[in-house]
């Protein structure tokens, strides 16, 4: 990723940022009011130099740190909900504070017109409550696109070319905990309203270089996941040493995508219907 695109990413996430802890949207931008890019930019030029300050309310807006998403197996003899409750209890014992909830979802689209004769690649469109006005479109292994939520409207317009595989919608919902500089999100992964597993996302907000904080993150995760601590996520492993994680949530989303693909292939857990 080039320096300019990192700069852009920080700009994009800046526009669509939201402070979930306080329920405030920052810099609610209406791209439909603009036609030319110069209009876009004129809006940017009104912004202060530091990209972590909201233009309107001048409050600091959280930036992305290094995240790790992993699947936690259901404890033996327990249900999904019981395992989630156990994790919550452990986090609270550590001194974590519950700060609202979170969701991540993923829709699958397949191309209808298959002119090339090869099996078409699946297009995934994802959303994350951390950036609720953004929309992430991904192909497995890339390319990735960050856009605003009007991309969803565009996909509706494209429905004769890209069909939404409704039954394949996967989402993870759950509680969001904060422990000092760590954000922990424990979610129940569901597909067509049946629970398929548990996801745990850990974000270390104080650092953007995965290699510099991985051991710390691992140690923190050990404190509540025990033996279930994952390896360094492959999105980071495949990058050259010391490369910064972009400040949008694409690295997080590709980890969720990997987890969701695994969950999709998995058998339905017995007696695991939710709500």
């Amino acid at each position: 990723m080039s320096a300019t695109s990192i700069d852009l990413q920080s700009y994009l996430s800046y526009i669509f940022c939201v402070d979930i802890a306080h329920g405030i949207h920052h810099f609610l931008f209406k791209p439909e009011a603009c036609f030319t890019l110069v209009e876009w930019f004129s809006k940017k030029s009104q912004a202060p130099a530091s990209s972590s300050i909201c233009v309107f309310c001048r409050s600091a807006v959280k930036k992305m740190g290094v995240t790790c998403v992993c699947q936690v197996p259901v404890a033996e003899g327990k249900s999904v909900q019981q395992t989630v409750d156990m994790l919550h209890k452990k986090l609270e014992q550590l001194g974590s504070v519950k700060q609202g909830s979170f969701w991540v979802d993923c829709e699958t689209y397949h191309a209808t017109g298959n002119a090339g004769g090869q099996p078409s690649k699946l297009l995934y469109v994802m959303h994350n409550s951390e950036t609720p006005l953004s929309c992430m479109a991904l192909y497995e292994g890339g390319p990735y696109l960050t856009a605003d939520v009007n991309f969803d409207v565009l996909m509706l317009k494209l429905k004769s070319h890209f069909q939404n595989a409704k039954g394949h919608k996967v989402e993870s919902r759950g509680a969001r905990y904060r422990y000092c500089d760590f954000l922990v999100k424990v979610g129940t992964v569901t597909m067509s309203s049946s629970a398929r597993g548990i996801s745990v996302e850990v974000e270390y907000c104080a650092c953007v270089v995965p290699g510099d904080c991985w051991n710390l993150m691992k140690e923190f995760m050990q404190s509540f996941l025990g033996a279930n601590v994952p390896e360094l996520p492959s999105v980071f492993a495949s990058k050259p040493e010391g490369l910064y994680a972009p400040s949008d949530c694409m690295d997080t989303m590709s980890q969720y995508l990997e987890l969701f693909s695994k969950v999709r292939k998995q058998q339905v857990l017995p007696g695991a219907s939710v709500r």
Binding site: S5, L12, F29, A137, P143, Y144, L154, F162
Partner: peptide, 18 residues
């Protein structure tokens, strides 16, 4: 009319979409 703001990977992404 649908307006979408998008990242710089847009040309690559549109190509991938066909």
């Amino acid at each position: 009319c649908v307006d979408v703001a998008a990242s710089h990977s847009l040309p690559d992404f549109l190509n991938e979409m066909g």
